[in-house]
Write a protein that binds this DNA or RNA. Sequence first.
DNA 1: AATGAATGAGAGTTCATTCAT
DNA 2: AATGAATGAACTCTCATTCAT
Lengths: 216, 216, 216, 216
Amino acid sequence: MARPKTEDKRKRILQAAVKVFARKGYFAARVSEIAKKAGVADGTIYLYFKSKEDILVRLFDEVMAEQAEEMGKVVRNLPAAPERLRAIAERHLRALGGNRDLAVVFQVELRQSTQFMARFTASWLGDYFALITDVIEQGQREGVLRADLNKKVATKAFFGALDEMVTSWIIGGKGYDLAQLAAPVVDLFLRGAAVSKKSAPARPALAAVATGRGGR
Amino acid sequence: MARPKTEDKRKRILQAAVKVFARKGYFAARVSEIAKKAGVADGTIYLYFKSKEDILVRLFDEVMAEQAEEMGKVVRNLPAAPERLRAIAERHLRALGGNRDLAVVFQVELRQSTQFMARFTASWLGDYFALITDVIEQGQREGVLRADLNKKVATKAFFGALDEMVTSWIIGGKGYDLAQLAAPVVDLFLRGAAVSKKSAPARPALAAVATGRGGR
Amino acid sequence: MARPKTEDKRKRILQAAVKVFARKGYFAARVSEIAKKAGVADGTIYLYFKSKEDILVRLFDEVMAEQAEEMGKVVRNLPAAPERLRAIAERHLRALGGNRDLAVVFQVELRQSTQFMARFTASWLGDYFALITDVIEQGQREGVLRADLNKKVATKAFFGALDEMVTSWIIGGKGYDLAQLAAPVVDLFLRGAAVSKKSAPARPALAAVATGRGGR
Amino acid sequence: MARPKTEDKRKRILQAAVKVFARKGYFAARVSEIAKKAGVADGTIYLYFKSKEDILVRLFDEVMAEQAEEMGKVVRNLPAAPERLRAIAERHLRALGGNRDLAVVFQVELRQSTQFMARFTASWLGDYFALITDVIEQGQREGVLRADLNKKVATKAFFGALDEMVTSWIIGGKGYDLAQLAAPVVDLFLRGAAVSKKSAPARPALAAVATGRGGR
DNA sequence: AATGAATGAGAGTTCATTCAT
DNA sequence: AATGAATGAACTCTCATTCAT
């Protein structure tokens, strides 16, 4: 029964870290404050993590591992590329929209330095990008996505759009439901902003859906 | 001509700061290193800037003021919304793609903290977003952009896509020409990733899938 | 007995500070030198004191608290005003004459600024003045001290005389016994410097006491 | 006509220094602030003074030279020791009571360090003490002052009493006339605080003088 | 004589990390 | 495993002084 208590402590430290990093920023965050919030002694943190930076790294890794697994499941359960993209967007926005502190850490604190970013890109973010690229590729093979699309550009544009939704949501602090933006974002990604040259007066039905909210 | 030497010194400090911030990151950057690289004494920096943070802030403000002005000119000289978006994208990518160090500072260092970000958003970034939103609105009025588009979401998606191009370019370190991505990004933004349903009889089945509902 | 080591460390820092302040002066004193002399790390000082200034303030407060208590006891155990004044003078001179470094800190370093002085006056020095004034008042009521005396002026003159004995002793550096000056100072304060017009050939006994040494 | 302007500048610097030292304290005083208040450039100060400390030293020396001369005159013009002491006290208190800023510098700033104090004592203060001692000695020879008095102790007590009047006046900040304390202080010094045992009815005339006012 | 931009040495303080208990 | 007192390296900024003009 030693493990559960131990695991509990580790988790408490991680949760405390999310809060402190989010409120103060990684550099201004004090290890002693994380310890205090986690209800452990300063030194105890070093029984579970190598260093302050290690806390941030593990945080990212663990959240990402969880997300990656679920993301994989979700995608596998859907057949067509558009639905898959929609599901990805929704998960992405729901995961971060559900925990503002975590979102702050992911959007802001994890981007402290080129080295940090390069490292994360190399590990999890690379996988995420690969997942999106795969779906796009599949869409192209199946003929639902334009074959003349540059896959990499499309992948980055897709991710960049989602990423910006999250960042704006954090900064805006308006508290709207982030996940609701999944639909309009994916719709825009698929159909584009321009009026389809041959399409008639546009579909009023869809318009109603796509409009709606979407705070800044 | 009263202080060419003085202005020169100020500029040298700013340029040195870009380099040092880019290589070390804002926090790890040492004021003394900036001074050394600028060829001035440590104390001299404080004749031109209030603090280390002030250097970063001025850097951002001055680059942004310059960009904002040129961005305004560029947009005013073009009539249609699509061309304007293309011009914005090109300027955006060219401005950052032309100076990797500056790009690093803008993509990474300036996003150190929510406070920093909120502050920059409030000043220049807000104007930039407004400019994009205006162009989109105009396009909607003129009937070239879909009227059922959520302007804010579209603005963020547009910016987010560009932003991610820059970030990926920095991290990739591959050294390709960033500005070349302007065309595909804008094309994707305008036409979308999906195959246009009516342009060619297309595959009805798949088209139905791509249309689908508006999501959630 | 929970923290003999801790208390010991605090005391060692205070003692080291007295020495360093006395030799170098408050401003020129280096925190690192105090730490070294106390046998602790620089940072350790900040576990016990808020700042360099705080060391000085605590030093004063703690010495004064101790002195004030003993001074009160001494005075309460003596009935007549003259004896009480004599006891005060003796304690005052003995307290500072027993530790030259401490005396330097009290006579010189603590008077660095009007703010410092005002602050100390407001706290302990005010109490000390009040004690002296009380004794003088009592003497007047009892008819041993002249009723036409301005109490406040007398209080300041009494304190000023003692204070100057200490200062001169410090600067002179001759190393005589400061406490021996208590008798002549109080004698002068009580009887005055002038020849008592009606008093006969003067009292040889007291003269012997008042003369003695007391070099500057 | 070069000299007057130059002398004027030197004087302006000295006057500015008195104000700044008094308000900020010697250490916190900024040379640039003195320059600004004197209406000269920072560098100009170094044409007239060797260093910041030199300003303080000159300040003291010049004021003291002036005072010493006048003090000498005053004393020479009076025959008896008691009158001379009264004149000294009055000059002392009037000189400092007439210029609070100067008084602050003399009472507080000049006592920054044992070295400072020792130095000043060695030069002017030593002369001042010698003057007082001489007068006391003379009084003893003439039989107006007690022969059994320790001259040095009496000198210090006399000076200390005056010194404390000034310090209290500065700290109190009440703004009463400092010079008015000369009479009661000297009266106390000469006649003492105790009721003269044999002079029963006491001298009403002197009593009236000794009472009077006398700020806090 | 006067200027004031430039210099650069210098120190208080913080805080991640360690380690004796 | 847990503690938390102790460590000490590290860094921004200030300001007396200089010197080219």
